[in-house]
Amino acid sequence: MRWGVIVFPGSCDDQDVYDCLKHVLKQKVEFLWHKDRLGRDIDCVVLPGGFSYGDYLRCGAMARFSPIMQGVVEFARNGGLVLGICNGFQILCEAGLLPGALTRNASLQFVCRQVHLRVEEIDTPFTSAAKKGQLLKLPVKHGEGCYYADPATLERLQKNRQILVRYVDGKGRPTAAANPNGSLENIAGVCNEARNVFGLMPHPEDASEKLLGSEDGAKIFSSVIAACGTRGKRAWVA
């Protein structure tokens, strides 16, 4: 399979994702400049973290209109796999590819620390390599990660089991203290209804090798690799 990592002006975790995929997971990966068109040979597109367009107006609000995003929306509609991390998650919400929005952390402070995530659903191409209820140790680093959705949207997310990861404590309990940003229901990541677009605030690319203190993030990438490997690249195309 082939990965594409989009580089927006102001992206800064693009290099981390590239390094993780290429050197740790030995994947074929390329950078995609935001002004280019999305190539036909990409199996999974990653929107990395950072501060695209300086976070002006709202995080992700302008990146959504980058030329490449038209291709990403079409790719996603055709079943292509799209993963948004941190600022990438914010962009996917702004673009309407994922429900809800990410707002200012309840503490008003930038948070940079390790968190525990509980994997809530495993019937997706992003979480299939994990066990249901498994805890993953990943870092967060953001100022606007407070997930919000109106009550009707939240109900739909629960009914369709679109909440894939929650912030929990070391024992797997979704407590207020374990919630780094005030997110609704401790939500750390959600997928779309078709389950081919996933966004999360924590950074799996920064926790995919021993040197970085955790290898748990690799579960997300290896899920995608397995999904593409067993089903083939056309399988996700509707």
Binding site: L57, R58, A61, M62, F65, E94, G100, A101, T103, D150
Partner: peptide, 8 residues
């Protein structure tokens, strides 16, 4: 389209 996010 841009200046406000209707979700929030």
């Amino acid at each position: 389209k841009l200046l406000a996010n209707p979700v929030i």
